[in-house]
Design a protein around this nucleic acid. Structure first.
Lengths: 239, 239
DNA sequence: TCGCTTTAGTGAGCGGTGCTCTCTGTTGAG
DNA sequence: CTCAACAGAGAGCACCGCTCACTAAAGCGA
């Protein structure tokens, strides 16, 4: 499982054979990524990747043990990209509200430009395919960027008081609570942050997949509203 | 397109041939539905439906012009089921807060029992497949059940004042605004209702598809919290 | 009732898929 | 230099959606 990570990409290739292997692995990934962008994950075919590269389909199996393993590699790549998009959209010196809006728009822009990749990350899973545990760490980059913003806001000016329903602490995964205690969040604040993340990731997905077609007229304006509403919910100074 | 609706199911069959056709159409649908529940939409195969029924795969094409048409029939069936689940979970004589919780739990229960069907309705769309317009009317049953609850609450006791960010009216589809004006909603209230619907449908999807695996420990408790938070957001009396 | 048209169902076939297996040639290490 | 590890090719298996030519039966107008 995930053998490609160790045999192909990591460590400096020493022999000519190893270098060739690393190179071809990258080429396969790049071709697969291009096809993913064009036809989406369900349409991605190992055979057509092989055709594009002018090699026998069976040869690709020397590099990726299965189509699922290839998809996993693309999944990791995409998680990193959306994390990168979120991080680079952040302006740590700006006020939290501006940062919040900026990061969410960065994520949405990436999603609009990489809709099939977004679907792979946050959409309905391909039946029979389960993302390996390895990916959870990388998957955290994007949400952690948002957590940092709220943590900074809390440190500098405090969060606005919240008057809504309370969340049962037992509902949240202990590891997640521990992680966010670094930002000195209460259970309540953690739950609201998770909720905000869920909601906005969901709304981007709905826009992308056309579920808002007969509902909203201006998706960007609706998203802007949702981002502000969500920001207010986690305690930022939107009104 | 959608010829099966007219040739197979609607109107009372008169001749023996028409009756046989109606019957077989139903059998195909039932078999397909069973397979959908077992292997999900991407795994649903017209050939295996035919095998289950002991007929040649090509014969199925006399009843459904394509796999997509078969999926559309299942889509309609599922939309009606989730609408039915929402409506029958409503207790119109109860207070709005109880009704709100009840309907959402009804929807979630249906989703948990019919996860592949839920994915078909609200998940990532199958590439190349676009749901026909016909379905939008049926799709409205579930959200309208929720709109009714909030409308009743507004009529009887008024909604709680909302202090969050405002929504640009241009963001919402005019037809949607007109539809909800029947419940005497303001643009702001309509936007919040849509938002609530988006969010909760999304959260159910996340739970179903495992995206909450490392985030929440008790999905039911988390959903309960989300339902209350969302109810408070639309102006119901949760605190 | 006859004859014709419409329909249901069959099975072969096309081009595609993921994946396996055997075989060949090459590379690299002891 | 030898030999094992490895890369690549190609045939093959079982599946997929879908089409087409063909047979048999049903329905219907004359």
């Amino acid at each position: 499982m995930l053998s490609f990570l160790y045999t192909g990409l990591m460590n400096a290739p020493r022999t000519a054979r190893e270098r060739a292997r690393a190179e071809l692995t990258k080429e396969i990934l790049a071709t697969a990524r291009r096809q993913l962008g064009e036809v989406g994950a369900p349409g991605l075919s190992l055979r057509s990747v092989a055709r594009d590269l002018g090699m026998a389909s069976s040869a690709v199996y020397r590099y990726f043990a299965s189509r699922d393993e290839l998809l996993t590699a693309l999944l990791i790549e995409s998680y990193n990209e959306v994390g990168e998009a979120a991080e680079s959209a952040d302006r740590p010196k700006a006020v939290p509200e501006i940062r919040w809006i900026g990061v969410w728009n960065g994520v949405r822009d990436w999603a609009l430009a990489n809709r099939h990749e977004y679907a792979l990350l946050f959409g309905t899973p391909v039946p029979g395919y389960a993302a390996p545990h390895l990916t959870t760490e990388i998957a955290a980059r994007m949400p952690l960027t948002l957590a940092r913003i709220v943590a900074d806001a809390k440190r500098d000016n405090g969060l606005r008081p919240y008057t809504g329903p309370k969340c049962d602490p037992a509902a949240i995964e202990p590891a997640m609570l521990a992680l966010l205690e670094e930002g000195a969040f209460t259970v309540e604040e953690t739950a609201r942050l998770i909720l905000a993340w869920n909601r906005l990731v969901g709304i981007i997905g709905y826009e992308l997949h056309g579920h808002l077609n007969n509902v909203t007229a201006d998706d960007a304006a609706y998203f802007d509203y949702a981002v502000r509403a969500e920001g207010a919910n986690v305690g930022l100074a939107f009104d």
